[in-house]
Simulated scan of single mutants.
Amino acid sequence: MRGLDYGAAALETALAPLLIAIVAAAAAACLCVLLRPLLVRYALARPNARSSHRVPTPQGGGIAVLAGAFLALGLAVLLVPMPAPERNGLLLVASAATLLAMVGAWDDIRPLPASTRLALQAACVGLVLFYASPELRLFPELMPLAIERALALLAGVWFVNLVNFIDGIDWITIAGIVPLTAALALAGLYGALDPASALLAAALCGGLLGFAPFNKPVARLFLGDVGSLPIGLLTAYLLYRLAGTGALTAALILPLYSIADATITLLRRLARREKVWEAHRSHFYQQATVNGFSVREVVAQVALLNLGLVVLAALSIRVSGLPAQLGCLGVAILLTAILLRRFSRRRLGLG
C-alpha cells in the first residue's frame, strides 16, 4: 500500500505542472479572443519609423497571459498542498506582477516619464526581493547583505526592462521565455527548484503558449508593456529562486541571449551618447530583419539557441566542480556570440 501511495503522490506531483500549463494556455487563448476587439478600439499600436510592424496592431495581450497564468496558479494554490511561506510568496509575487502590469498598461496608453517608470519598477522589484524571498542569499561569504540586496535590485530592474526591450518582433518573447519557463517547471520535478516556483513557471509557460497563436508572424496581437514588464519580473524571480539553490551558473545561462542582446545594445547606445530611454531599432534581432532574415527565421534561431541553453543549464546543474560549470557557461557564451554575430551581418547572397 505504501508503494501505491508513493506512486500516486509522484504521479500527482508530475501532472500538476502540466495541468496548470494547460489551464493557463486555455484561459489565455480564450481571453485573447474576448479582449482583442476591446484592444483594437482602445490600445492600437500604430507603426512608426522605429516599429517592426507595418499595420496598426492592438497591444495588451499581456493581460490575457497574466490572467490565464494567475487563474491557473490560483487553482494550484487551492488544490496543491504547499507550506504557507511558499503559498504566501506566490501570492506576493503575483501581486507585485499585477502592480507592474498596471504600470505597463498606463505606459501603453499614456507614456510615463522614464524616471517615474523606473521608480515604479524598482518598487515592484523591491517588493518581491525583500518580502517574497527574504531568506535567499547568493553570496553570503563575499559581501554584506545590504550590498547583495542592492545589486539584486539593480539586476531585477534591468531584467524587467530587457525583457521589454527584447519584445520587439513577433514571437520572440515566446521563443525566449517558453523554453526557459518549461525548463524551470521540469526542474521542480527533479528537485532543482522548489515546487511553488515550478508551478509558477508552468503557469507562465502556459499563459504564453495560449497567447502564441495570436502573436505569430504577422501578429494580430502584441503583449504590450502590460505584459512584457510583469513577465520580466516573474522570470527574474524564478531565476533568482534557481540561483538560490546553488545553481547560479544555470540561472545565468538560461536567459543569456536576452541578456547579451539587450546589454550589448545598451552599452553601444551609451557609447554613441544616444538617449537610451527612447525607442530604437538597433537590437541584434532587429538588425537581422534588416540584414535579410525573415521574422520567422530570427525567432526560430533564437528558439533553437535557447533550447541549447536549456541543455547547457541542465548540464551545469548535473556536473560537479566550478571548472565544469564554467565550461558550460563558456560554451553558452560562445553559442550566443555566434548568433549575435550572424544577426549583425548581411545575409550571404543578398549583396
Rank of each mutant, 00 (worst) to 15 (best):
W106I: 14
L340K: 02
L304E: 06
L73D: 00
H283P: 06
A288P: 09
G246D: 07
P111A: 03
A9S: 14
A314L: 08
V157Q: 00
S228A: 15
A203G: 04
F130I: 02
R268F: 09
S133Q: 14
N164H: 12
L38P: 06
L15N: 03
D108Y: 13
V295F: 12
V33G: 00
A97K: 03
L307N: 03
P255N: 08
G61S: 04
A243F: 08
R110G: 05
L334V: 14
N215K: 08
A101C: 09
N48F: 06
L99N: 03
F222W: 04
L19A: 14
L38E: 14
P85V: 02
R281E: 05
F214L: 01
S316L: 02
A49N: 10
S282W: 11
N48I: 08
G330M: 07
H53V: 11
P81L: 12
L208N: 02
L309I: 00
L15Y: 03
L136P: 02
A279Q: 11
R137C: 04
A150I: 09
V157D: 01
A105F: 15
T265L: 04
S320F: 06
C30D: 05
G292W: 14
L239M: 10
G206S: 01
A72T: 03
P47G: 10
L254Y: 13
A45P: 08
V218I: 15
L39P: 04
I253Q: 12
A251F: 08
R149H: 05
A123N: 09
C205K: 01
L99T: 09
R296A: 15
A279F: 12
I264W: 14
G246N: 12
Y257R: 02
A114K: 05
R54W: 07
I174Y: 13
H53I: 12
V299Y: 11
T249R: 00
F222L: 07
P213G: 06
R342S: 13
E297R: 09
G176P: 03
V55Q: 15
A155N: 01
P17N: 03
A247L: 06
V298T: 12
T249N: 02
L35K: 10
A24G: 01
L79F: 15
P179E: 10
S133M: 13
R341G: 12
L256Y: 04
Y257F: 15
S316W: 01
M82N: 04
P37T: 07
Y285W: 06
P56I: 08
